[in-house]
Design a protein around this nucleic acid. Sequence first.
DNA 1: CTGAAAGCGCTAACAC
DNA 2: GTGTTAGCGCTTTCAG
Lengths: 349, 349
Amino acid sequence: MAKRKTISIKDVARESGASLTTVSLVLNRRARRISPETRQRVMETANRLGYRPSRLAQGLQAQRAGVLAILVPQIRRAFADAYFGELISAIHEHAGEAEWKILLEVAYPRFIETRQHLELFDRHFVDGLLCLGVTSRDEYLRDFARIGTDSARPVVVVNNYLPGVTLNHVRCDYHQAGRLAAEYLIGLGHRRIGLIHGASEVQTSWDLRRGFEESLAEAGIDLPASRVEDGLYTEEGGAAAVAALLRREPALTAVMTGNDKMAVGAISALKESGRSVPDDISVVGCDDMHQAAYCDPPLTTVHTPIYEVGRRACESLLELIEGRQQSVEETLPVYLTVRRSAAPPRATS
Amino acid sequence: MAKRKTISIKDVARESGASLTTVSLVLNRRARRISPETRQRVMETANRLGYRPSRLAQGLQAQRAGVLAILVPQIRRAFADAYFGELISAIHEHAGEAEWKILLEVAYPRFIETRQHLELFDRHFVDGLLCLGVTSRDEYLRDFARIGTDSARPVVVVNNYLPGVTLNHVRCDYHQAGRLAAEYLIGLGHRRIGLIHGASEVQTSWDLRRGFEESLAEAGIDLPASRVEDGLYTEEGGAAAVAALLRREPALTAVMTGNDKMAVGAISALKESGRSVPDDISVVGCDDMHQAAYCDPPLTTVHTPIYEVGRRACESLLELIEGRQQSVEETLPVYLTVRRSAAPPRATS
DNA sequence: CTGAAAGCGCTAACAC
DNA sequence: GTGTTAGCGCTTTCAG
């Protein structure tokens, strides 16, 4: 139990023969009014003693925890998901540069029921919160809706938003993502096109769908319900969805999926059913995750700047916290990455 | 700026007409000596006012942050890795039950150089640290070596250890994992067996190798260097390693890999080279991750209780912190999960 | 059964 | 230029 005696500013003051104020001033670089000699002496003593300011005391004084929380949804293995991983990395890196620490929370039902999402702030665990993977079923988000310019509990929703709830958010332009994919497929000559969208409780899945439909409509192409399926954002869902789609619409020549995982699932199901991608049917994904370039065939997909979204969300949250901003609603541009999973339809069609 | 006035114990005292002491006593359930009426009155006022104790103040007083840190290695996309994800989930869940918060840190070179791994403790950011994905190159771990019973900076190394450094750790029995795989393959009738081990700076990769070799030797089977490759724990590495192995030893009928990822990579490379698994060559993995059951063929693999390791590591860390334990060195048992990627060698061989 | 007061480690207003 | 002091919000002796 050699419990290292934690050495405090007091010790430095005593050892250096200066007062608490002086030491504090020197250590906080507010040393304008301190004589160089005193400054020097204090610094030396602090180093010699290995002084480290207590974050607890500083926090109490400043009424500031110096910590941000990331709230991850309770999906199976959220911590092993490439999408969330990318966001977490981005946020962590940016926060770290600004000397903020990151607390990890999972939106377990119990976590919400016991109002811990509010306690996070009220008990000064954190100064800000980033919400990942939110859906319209996440009622707790209403607790964070901006009322006027209330900045008591700064929250930023990451890469999504809730219609009808005034929440800070940073996201990709999924409406445009839908448009880009549709326009590309149309340009290749496709007319019978399907859509496998993500879980319908996710707002951006509707944005993508709307953009996709819009572009098709502009080209005089219909998107009947029979050509639309929910793939739940998973590989398995994508596989099941493409099968269902082809059962109803065997003549489909192309399909877009709301993320890359569903595209991968769909492609593998298509292969198993003996179809070739893109010769028999084209597939366009959305995300452009690392694996997109390495699957077979390499995936043509809409690139969504996920890392950048994480970065900007974190940056915005800090602005919110520091009062440099009252609200954030940002949409980042997307673009199409052409690889080899989409091609013109067979001449026979 | 409707900055909610943060309401303190003082407010509760004033409003309920009790003293600070009384309120504190009631709120901390040390209410033995408090009259039921006072108790009732205080509780009501606290609820009405929505009082929430400040963790900063409590922490300062108790000299305790109530936070644990998870230190993740700086590998690309560590936050998107199934193995680390499983550990993080396990730790987070267990910590949460005991009302501890989890801080996330990445072992960037800069993080170590600036001694932030020590500041974590010295500045009272956290009370304990869990190190994931540790290798023998992580010199910073020596800063945490137990000296006598120094418990000033409680640290637990998760699912690994460092020979020659006295560190607390909880891990799976990789020596036994090697033995189980070898014995199974030998039992199936294999004699020309290869090993694709993980990165050699990871101690447990040597344990597995030693166990594997040991069991082969006991059966009178040799494991020359030509039958051993480093697969770096990645899919690509596994694929490359199996190719190299077969170039040198075309008659190999079975191979073990140090984790499931390498097994997946190896199997895909084998398929591409026109070989059938397990008909032409058997593959046994190690980990038994979620995907192991779903790949093609389903993977025969040594099950390592990763989730349990995370849980136990967290539990042990808390015991260390609370002084209920002086040191932890625990090894959890593994077992073989038989699926379909390993079979007897062809009769012709 | 209850309260006054000290102190955790730090910052900053104010005095000298 | 430097020091004294109050106070951040809480727990905990120690007196009543």
